[in-house]
Structure formats: C-alpha cells, structure tokens
Design a protein around this nucleic acid. Sequence first.
DNA 1: ACGATGCTACGGTCGCCTCCGAAGCATCGC
DNA 2: GCGATGCTTCGGAGGCGACCGTAGCATCGT
Lengths: 231, 231
Amino acid sequence: MTSTALFAEISALAGDPARASMLHALMDGRALTAGELSRVAGVTPQTTSGHLARLATAGLVSVEQQGRHRYHRLATPSIARMLESIMRVAADLAPVRRRLSVGPRDASLRLARTCYDHLAGTLGVALADALAEQGHVELGPDAGIVTEGGIAFLRQLGVAIDRPSKSRRIACRPCLDWSERRAHLAGSIGAALCARSFEAGWVRRLDGTRAVAITPKGRHVFAERFGAVLP
Amino acid sequence: MTSTALFAEISALAGDPARASMLHALMDGRALTAGELSRVAGVTPQTTSGHLARLATAGLVSVEQQGRHRYHRLATPSIARMLESIMRVAADLAPVRRRLSVGPRDASLRLARTCYDHLAGTLGVALADALAEQGHVELGPDAGIVTEGGIAFLRQLGVAIDRPSKSRRIACRPCLDWSERRAHLAGSIGAALCARSFEAGWVRRLDGTRAVAITPKGRHVFAERFGAVLP
DNA sequence: ACGATGCTACGGTCGCCTCCGAAGCATCGC
DNA sequence: GCGATGCTTCGGAGGCGACCGTAGCATCGT
C-alpha cells in the first residue's frame, strides 16, 4: 500500500454522494445510527450498510454497538479537519460553478451550527469578531492568539481552558467555513467555548441536524458579555 | 449544485489513483507539463489529457499555455491545504493498514522536501524544533507564535516577514506531515523561510521531484545559525 | 517547408461500484 | 414465546468512468 494509493482510496470514499452526505452529517461530532444516516443519504438501509462497512474498515468512522443500534462517528478529529478543508475548497469553487442552494432549509444552518467540535455560522463568526474587537484574541492569517485578558475573560465565563505548561500564551486555530467565508474559532479554544455554550444553555441543538438554536439566555450573554452583534 | 454534491465531486476527482498521483506531484507548488504528469501517473498522454481537463474545469488546477507545453499548477493554496489534510489522514490510517512503502526512492523525500510552499521532512521538523528550542517560536497544539526575538532572528537571516499591522505578534500555522508525524512550520512564515532557503542557496531542488537537497552552505547555516540537528 | 514533439478529440472495450430486492440474524417490547 | 425493529449479507442489474488506439491540430527546430 503506497502512500498515493491510500490517499486515493480515502478521497474516493469521500467521493460518493451517498457517503459524502453521511460524512457531512457526522461533521457535528455526534454519533448517528445507520438508520439515521440512511435517511440523510437518501438510500436504502442495505446500501447504507455497505457504505458504512467500507468507511469503518477504512478507519474513517468508528462503530459502537448499543443494543440493536449501531452508532457511527468520525474516527478522529483529523478526519473532521479533512472534511472541513474539502468543504473549504468546495466553497471557493462554488462561485465559479452554479450558486450554492440557499433554500430556507439552510437558513438555520447558516445562522448557527456546530462544526465538529466548535461553533460555526454567523454566530461563530460574530463571536470571533467580538473577541477580536475586545482584544481577547488576535486573529492572524494563519493562526490566532488568545491574550492574557482573553484567558481571564473566558475563564470567568466558565470556559475550561488548558494553558500549555511551557508557554505563557495560547495559540488557536481559525477555521474558514462555507457560509460566512470568514474565520471563526476552532481548535481546543473553540471546542471549549462550544462545550460551555451547550452546558450553560446558551445554545441548544436543533432537532437532528448540525444546526443549533441560540436561546434567549444565550442571546443575552453573547450580546452583553461577549459584545457580539447578532442579527 | 448543492453543497454536498460539490463536496463529493471534488473528493471523487482526488479519488482516482492517476489523478491522485498528479495532484501529489503538484503539491510542491510548481507548474508541471502534461507530459511530466503523464509519466508521474503512469498512464498514456491521452488519458492524462482527459484527467487534466476534468481537474481544470472543476477549478482544482489552473492551466497556462507556453508554446506547445501546457503548464498545470494547483489553482489555490486552499487546495494544497486540502491535499495536505487528506495526506494527514492517510498517514494516521497507514499503521492500521499495511506499512507504507519506505523504499530508497523515498529516502531523499523523507530527508527534505517542499510541501507546496514550505519545507517539510526531517529538515522541516528539525528547523521547527530548533526555532522552538531557541525560543524563537512557541508551538501549541493548534497553532504557533513567532516571538519578538524570533522575528528579529529571522529578519537578520534575510527571511521576509510581514508583520500584521494591528497585532504586535505573529501567529503561524503548524503542518503535520506523513513522514515525520511531527509539526513543522507552514503558513506565511514557513513560506518565507522556504523562499529564503532557495534564494540563499541553503537548499536546491532535486531533479524533478518534491525532494530538495541541503547544500553544504545550507547545512552550515542550519546547524550554526539555527541550531538544527541534522542527520 | 518539413518532420518531430506535445497535446487533444473521438470511439470502443472493460471493469468496478452503486443500488435495490430478497433473505437472514440479532435485539427489543409485550 | 412472538412479532416488530434495526441492521447485515447475498445476488444480480445497471451505469458510470478509466483506459488505450487511432487520428488530428498546434508549435518548435532545422
């Protein structure tokens, strides 16, 4: 198995529309059953089973059996990053092609959603902008930095931040997504902020999708404490 | 054209072994002719032509005609990052599968090579380690920071660094690659360091591959100035 | 002008892979 | 126990796409 062949195999696995839909659905970091993924992909359960078997043996998804359900999730965070980067290219290429479908079904996704382990969409960008505006983070072209004040600010709001032992500073990863085409906070900081948002009830998951709803409490916190401008 | 369909299309384009080889070869950021790519992929010119046409119309590669040659390159840096992230997943998955081929042909690639616009391989990792050791950069799990001393140090060596206007600090992007499985410097800093290395004759490109050779002068500079430990 | 080189267009073959229907196995609820 | 649910395996039909041979067009060197 040469390096290129494995590369092609992984890409080909992501290159089927049905499997792409499933991987897309798993991008929020949750574990979904084969039946749910079947409905998402729009194919019959037996076809889905075959797809999931291939994804599992390749190591892209991990399977966990619970009773008569089999829960599938992305095997590693690096796979989520890979899917992210492909979506990024797709967003770059979309204007050249036809316009992306912007139906009402996408509206809630555009406003706020999870991107594997962090918040994305208008909300994610607004939070990143607000944190930068207040001097809590500094966002560069390749990466970002959480300032001393930012660490204190986030800790005060209950966001669990692990400070690296050696460094006094914390670097964070920006993530460009398809809807806003702007940077939002990813990496461990983004994950901690997202986890805290769910824990504190600032956002809650919407039905069975990647979309999240901003609660009244969350809207207040995001506006008053973070200084984020939300539509 | 819905978002998922475009995602699948891009993945499928990268999912063919012949096209994967071509994209792999283009990862060093240079522009290659159809004939070169044909030899790399191991297929006939007419098959190559078809593949390149599909890659070009999709927008993954851009074409530039010069005489009777047609030069192809990756259309955007985001595409290089996408390929990088797929290679990263492939490297993660490789131990589970069979061992990667580590023939003598790969030896020079493992020692030093370009990764689109920055240096990778043992050299890339050694430079990153040395810069971190000397306190010129601080590498975190998600991103890194170039310190004030690091900026001065790199400028002194002729590395062109654009300091962002607003921030006093420069964040940089780490890149994990398949051979070392360790972080090396990517992003604008990595690109500047790589460009300077070619310009100053510290490294030179090896025949027609991604591999680069470390010149005697380069070996001296990397060891004495950077403090990098090279085999 | 002439052949050589680099690349592309067309037509046909072949193989892989996606998909579903039918059937089988495990688990859950009653 | 017994049916219902969730998922998988098997088998076959269908279609897409990769590949090459042949042929044609543009460009370069002499």
